[in-house]
Amino acid sequence: MNIGVLVKPVPDPEQYNTITIDPQTKRLNREGVPSIVNPADKCAIEEALRLKEKFGGKVVVFGMAPPDGREKLLECLAMGADEAVLVSDRAFGGADTLATSYTLVKALEKKAAEGGSFDLILAGNESADGATGHVPAQVGEQIGYNHLSGIVKIESGSESEPSTLTVFQKYENGKNEFTIKLPAVIGVSRDINKPRYTSAMGVIKAKKKPFDIYDTINLEHDKERIGLAGSPTKAGAIFSPDTRRKSEELSGSPEEIAEELVKRIKATGAVIVSGGGCHER
């Protein structure tokens, strides 16, 4: 089973509280926040590796990023992916999800033409930074494969390589169980698995694995469909939401605090049920 996995380097979500907007330039200041492989994308790699361990084939990671994205793709190779493609060019920059997925589709097609077609394309359902969740659907639609997002479980049977997968999609009231015919694009949620840790042995092998860089010169594309020009949405001003409240402090012994709390709680209109037996909430 040949699997393509779409990955994106993102600023470490643990440190989003330190991101600020410069009051003068109104630009984003993310200085000192390191990049990591988007957490949901690591789950996609993990899922791909498990399928490969079962059915054979290869796992190729694709990342559209500035040149320093190379390090993050090397991390994916160290984790166990077989090949990496960095899609990187100044002209790809400023792309919205439509232009991004178009560019990724071109890269997937080029790699498929050189090294065999993909049976499955996996991606994290959404990136931690932009978090649109659009890319799996938009890649699927543009490459012409079936696509589903928000997947929390993939069942592939146990025998020979399947032509159809059973997948479970998280939705508001529970889970939708679908079958999806391959080739397909699947966006996986972080709940799908716990990605493996990278081993020292994996790190040593990483640099010896095939690594391609696609840019506007070697990647065939329509220049009206990439970067800013290919993006129907335009970004305007950015601002930080003001969530501050008055933060009045209650102090005293836990009992004193509890006494005051009940008064405050009643003032909010919350209805207290005596005896605490409100099991049918």
Binding site: T97, G133, E141
Partner: peptide
Amino acid sequence: STAQGTEIAPTLGVKLHTGVAAH
């Protein structure tokens, strides 16, 4: 932004070649 909405909206974005703003 339900499971359906987040699947269909970006798909329409491709089919109609237009922008989609998420969440």
